[in-house]
């Protein structure tokens, strides 16, 4: 397979970036998208050029490192996958593929396709934890959790923090990420006591860091590699409003 790649190149956070075109041939159908970029980088290095910088780690859709905006969609033209799980079979030989970094005020580009997602860590530091002193570990069966609640909490907990929701949103909103973290903790007994306080703190930090507001378009849910439901955003709204009206 052969492709025309239009890839965003940017030397560092302060420099002005631009798209650079590359023609690549000899791409195997069995390659993943990141392997195709590895292959491109090998040819760039061999020709004395700088390789394209992009983030990757586990390459099995768990770590949330990969963060490419491919042909107008976060993680490319497939559903419920991270970029590392995207296969070249999703493209036709001869296609032009546009590869960009996440673009948001809160995710500044550091180099080429790598963005700084420290804003997500700051949101977590604002309240994405349980500070209740629970003492010694209790007997597991003494705090029963129904299967439905446990499943829903798990559905939120599988968020890998990749930032695709921010990239997918026309307002660069981080509501799906914050909602997943708030839901995951609010649903379970250990996290419930601080649920409302947590929602307030994390929303305040999200706003402070320059993320946009939610328009409920559903684009984040559709592009989330883990399929995290919009219902979690409604729960975040509920927890936040309850916290405000109770005080």
């Amino acid at each position: 397979m052969e492709f025309k790649l239009k890839i965003w190149r940017q030397k560092n956070a302060r420099s002005q970036g631009a798209f650079v075109e590359y023609f690549i041939s000899g791409v195997s159908k069995e390659m993943s998208f990141l392997e195709m970029l590895d292959y491109l980088n090998k040819t760039l290095i061999e020709s004395g050029d700088n390789p394209v910088a992009f983030e990757h780690d586990c390459r099995e859709g768990i770590c949330g490192s990969c963060s490419l905006y491919i042909n107008g969609r976060p993680h490319g033209p497939d559903d419920l996958i991270a970029t590392c799980e995207l296969r070249m079979t999703k493209f036709k030989s001869g296609d032009t593929i546009i590869v960009e970094p996440w673009r948001a005020k809160s995710f500044p580009v550091l180099r080429d396709l790598i963005v700084d997602r420290y804003a997500f860590d700051k949101i977590m530091q604002a309240g994405g934890f349980i500070s209740v002193n629970s003492g010694a570990a209790p007997e597991a069966n003494s705090i029963p959790v129904s299967r439905e609640v446990a499943d829903e909490a798990f559905d939120a907990a599988i968020c890998i923090g990749c930032g695709a929701c921010v990239a997918a949103c026309k307002n660069s909103s981080a509501m799906l990420f914050v909602a997943a973290k708030v839901s995951q903790l609010a649903l379970l007994p250990q996290g419930k006591p601080e649920a409302e306080k947590r929602a307030r703190a994390m929303v305040a930090k999200m706003d402070e860091l320059g993320f946009g507001s939610c328009s409920n378009t559903g684009a984040c849910e559709a592009e989330c590699p883990k399929g995290i439901s919009l219902a979690h955003i409604a729960r975040l709204n509920r927890e936040f409003l309850l916290a405000v009206f109770k005080t």
Partner: peptide
């Protein structure tokens, strides 16, 4: 919200 993405996506 228009200012939350200073650099727009190309596609």
């Amino acid at each position: 919200n228009q200012f939350k993405r200073p650099q727009k996506f190309a596609k």
